[in-house]
């Protein structure tokens, strides 16, 4: 499978999806006006990856800001990961947040409660 490697921009995050390594990373800001356009290739990639995932998939989500239209797209990403998890593969989700950013921690907890995969909440020092 082709890798997805996208450099971050002021409104869109850095993305690193690597099937060989079983790695899914989204980092930075996700505040585009059209989130669906940005996330569609990512979700399509995951739909392919679901068919033959690695035994262990490592997921690193480290967002500084994301808008509510991105939040739905991010949930779509998590739902694909949930499918992989339910097929008895290991999926490790690391949700990073800055130390006093309780809103970002809560956003992670909200996702965790919807998709039923345990998240590892990782606090970053500022």
């Amino acid at each position: 499978m082709e890798k997805i490697s996208i450099t971050g921009s002021p409104k869109t995050p850095f993305v690193n999806f690597n099937a060989n390594e079983g790695l899914v990373e989204i980092k930075g800001r996700s505040i585009p006006e059209n989130s669906i356009e940005f996330y569609k290739p990512l979700v399509d990639w995951l739909d392919l990856y679901i068919k033959s995932p690695k035994k262990m998939t490592n997921v690193n989500i480290q967002l500084e800001y994301f808008n509510t239209s991105s939040s739905k797209c991010i949930l779509d990403v998590f739902k694909r990961l949930e499918t992989i998890y339910k097929a008895r593969n290991e999926v490790i989700i690391n949700w990073f947040y800055e130390e006093d950013d309780e809103d970002m921690l809560e956003a992670g907890e909200d996702y965790e409660s919807i998709i039923n995969i345990p998240f590892k909440m990782v606090e970053l020092e500022e």
């Binding site: 808008n67 509510t68 239209s69 949930l75 909200d110």
Partner: peptide, 20 residues
């Protein structure tokens, strides 16, 4: 309500999720 709206699949025609 936030979780309910987040988890429904609908997007408005302008891409907003109704969540803002």
């Amino acid at each position: 309500l936030y979780k309910l709206v987040l988890n429904n699949q609908e997007f408005s025609e302008k891409g907003g999720g109704g969540l803002g």
